[in-house]
Design a protein around this nucleic acid. Structure first.
Length: 222
DNA sequence: TTCCAGGGAT
DNA sequence: ATCCCTGGAA
């Protein structure tokens, strides 16, 4: 079942409205002010499992204790786990530590790769986080789809798709790639905007279509 | 008080 | 397909 390509005009309108909305409505979050791949990674891993409000404190404390990949790599497992205490999903803290030790190993620069395919080889990094680091840290022109993005894209372009079904999720990745702006810099903003819209307006429980910049072109707007 | 969201590993 | 863990919505 081939996926109908999105009309260029719709694509352009989608991006412009989305980004314009973002500029006016986005929250001011610390990980949006940095391009440090390490910080972006830490924030993404924490955000996978916790609300923004809660991540804020943990993120600040974590970065204070482990300011760089090298600091984290040098730390004792116990201290890393203590810093994660209360966030849950502790396997991810272990993966993060493992990752830090891996990329700094034997004189390694402690740098993360910038390509999603390379990032995905690292422990704890799946398709979403790979895209997030590539886009948010390196400003690569990379797609990223988490459940927020999947929900927004399906509602706007393909209401028949069910993001929970793996087969449909693949199609949503295709849509995400099709709607990606030309430059990495603009993609950064658009990806952030997609996530923000999913978090603030087009939420799982409530569709606040009256405040949505995409309502006019949305296939499931009310 | 129950129910669900949320990436990745296995 | 299941598990991991917790806050917050219903």
């Amino acid at each position: 079942m081939p996926l109908k390509p999105i009309a260029p005009a719709a694509r352009a309108a989608f991006g412009r409205r989305l980004r314009a909305w973002y500029r006016r409505n986005h929250r001011d979050l610390p990980w949006r002010k940095t391009r440090d791949p390490y910080r972006v990674l830490v924030s993404e891993l924490m955000l996978q499992q916790t609300q923004v409000s809660r991540v804020l404190e943990f993120y600040a404390r974590f970065i204070e204790r482990f300011p760089t990949m090298q600091h984290l790599a040098d730390a004792r497992p116990k201290r890393v786990m203590e810093s994660w205490e209360g966030l849950g999903y502790y396997a991810r803290a272990r993966n993060l530590h493992k990752l830090a030790r891996h990329v700094t190993r034997e004189g390694g620069p402690g740098a993360l790769p910038s390509e999603p395919t390379e990032l995905r080889k690292l422990p704890g990094i799946g398709a979403y986080t790979a895209g997030a680091v590539a886009s948010f840290a390196y400003e690569k022109r990379a797609a990223l789809v988490d459940t927020n993005v999947a929900r927004v894209l399906s509602r706007v372009f393909a209401p028949k798709l069910n993001p929970k079904r793996p087969r449909d999720l693949k199609k949503l990745w295709v849509i995400a790639e099709q709607t990606l702006p030309r430059t990495g810099k603009t993609a950064w903003t658009q990806n952030q905007a997609l996530m923000e819209l999913g978090a603030l307006v087009c939420t799982a429980r409530l569709k606040r279509c009256d405040e949505c910049p995409l309502a006019r072109m949305c296939k499931s707007a009310e």
